[in-house]
């Protein structure tokens, strides 16, 4: 019933590979999901409301004061 320690380094390599796969699997899982509607709506709203970029907004803020 004793676990051999001799193959510990092999196990370690395996565990490292396992970690790599798990890490990537969890990530890819989300990566492959379709973009939720809330973000499509958000981008549409941003597009409607203001030009992207810093300066435009500053100008607007200054004007509105």
């Amino acid at each position: 019933m004793t676990q051999r320690k001799g193959d510990a380094s092999q196990l370690d390599t395996d565990v490292q590979a396992h970690i790599g796969r798990q890490l990537r699997a969890g990530y890819v899982d989300i990566l492959n999901q379709p973009v939720p509607d809330r973000f499509l709506e958000l981008l549409a709203e941003l597009d409607r409301r203001q030009d992207p970029g810093d300066r435009d907004e500053d100008v607007r803020q200054n004007r509105s004061r």
Partner: peptide, 15 residues
């Protein structure tokens, strides 16, 4: 341009 990157942003944020 932003839309393209939403999936990886979500994956990063969840991780």
């Amino acid at each position: 341009e932003l839309l393209v990157h939403i999936p990886s942003l979500r994956a990063f944020a969840v991780s």
